[in-house]
Amino acid sequence: MTTILVTGGTGTLGRLVTERLGARGHEVRVLSRHAQPYAVDLRTGAGLDAAVAGVDTAVHCASAPRGDEEAARNLVAALRQAGVGHLVYISIVGVDEVPLGYYKHKYAVERIVEESGLGWTVLRATQFHDLVVSVLQGLARTPLLMPVPAGVADQPIEVAEVADRLAALAEGAPAGRVPDMGGPEVLGFPELARAYLRATGRRRRIVPVRLAGATYQALRAGRHLTPERAVGRGTFAEYLAKRFGPAS
């Protein structure tokens, strides 16, 4: 039986990866800041050596707005010391082309993984459905108007499908950078907004807004999309119906 460590194992993605690996008969260690017996803050590394002892593979799902690079360095050092053979990392499509601060940190972690001296696998995915909904909720806060970024699309994917892929990668040999995973549809923000408003029974006038800056230009150019890798099956409409009920 393989022992697999999942960092961020109580989060949206990590929890599903943990469930899948456990169901396949692996011994799974859930690492997060508050999950016993492996409550570890990766940014300090305290308790990390004990958590990785005897581990065969690690799946790195933990992420935060700050400290990702330090956390990755601490994790890599502990895995290397413990002789762990395989590190799987989940990243985001476009981290090397969209100059968003969070993306820059994710791309830096990719490089830390690649240069770790460990066997490694990196998977990039597009945005999860729930994150797109969170963005739309924020845009719909005003009572009459809903501003959306003009000329920008997204390619939301079902998080469970990404969890399935990560679990399969964790069971396999190190594969380097594997093909990206994108959702089944590329949808413009006005279309995403209309679907969200229908699903939640809200009325807003959708107003496309042109923005400034390099990040906006990269998003308009679709650098965060992977239409040639539209391998996801669950659509945004299906996610909305599951979450909010049938549209009225």
Results as ranks from 00 to 15, higher is better:
Ala195Gly: 02
Gly172Gln: 08
Gln137Glu: 15
Ala150Asp: 14
Leu144Ile: 14
Arg202His: 05
Val135Tyr: 13
Ala168Thr: 13
Ala173Val: 09
Ala168Asp: 14
Arg165Tyr: 05
Asp180Phe: 05
Arg165Trp: 01
Phe128Gly: 07
Leu144Phe: 15
Gly201Met: 01
Leu197Cys: 03
Thr121Ala: 13
Gly182Tyr: 05
Thr121Tyr: 08
Leu187Cys: 09
Leu192Phe: 08
Leu187Asp: 05
Leu166Ala: 09
Asp180Glu: 15
Ser134Phe: 06
Phe128Thr: 03
Phe128Ile: 07
Val135Asp: 00
Val159Asn: 07
Phe189Asn: 11
Ala193His: 04
Leu144Trp: 14
Ala193Trp: 03
Val122Leu: 15
Val186Thr: 15
Val186His: 07
Asp154Ile: 02
Val159Thr: 15
Gly182Pro: 13
Leu169Ala: 09
Glu191Val: 13
Arg198Ile: 00
Leu166Thr: 08
Pro156Asn: 12
Trp120Met: 04
Val133Arg: 02
Leu136Met: 10
Arg165Met: 07
Val162Ser: 05
Ala175Arg: 13
His129Glu: 01
Val152Met: 06
Gly176His: 07
Asp180Gly: 00
Arg141Trp: 02
Gln127Lys: 05
Pro179Cys: 12
Phe189Cys: 09
Leu197Ala: 02
Ala199Pro: 06
Ala140Leu: 04
Leu192Trp: 09
Arg124Asp: 11
Pro147His: 02
Leu144Asp: 02
Ala163His: 12
Gln155Leu: 11
Leu139Ile: 03
Glu161Pro: 08
Val152Ile: 08
Asp154Lys: 11
Trp120Ile: 06
Glu185Ser: 11
Tyr196Lys: 05
Gln127Arg: 09
Tyr196Asn: 02
His129Ile: 03
Ala163Phe: 06
Arg124Ser: 14
Val132Pro: 04
Ala170Thr: 09
Val186Cys: 11
Ala163Met: 10
Leu192Tyr: 09
Ala163Gly: 09
Met181Ile: 10
Ala160Arg: 14
Gly151Glu: 14
Gln155Val: 11
Arg141Gly: 01
Ala170His: 05
Pro149Lys: 08
Tyr196Asp: 01
Ala150Lys: 15
Leu123Met: 07
Leu166Gly: 10
Gly151Val: 12
Pro179Met: 10
Gly119Asn: 10
Thr142Asn: 09
Gly119Gln: 10
Asp180Arg: 14
Val132His: 04
Gly172Pro: 08
Val135Leu: 14
Arg124Pro: 09
Pro143Gln: 04
Ser134Pro: 00
Gly188Val: 04
Ser134His: 12
Ala173Tyr: 00
Thr200Asp: 01
Asp130Gly: 00
Arg202Trp: 00
Ala175His: 08
His129Arg: 04
Ala175Gln: 14
Arg202Gln: 15
Gln127Ala: 13
Leu192His: 08
Ile157Asp: 07
Pro156Val: 11
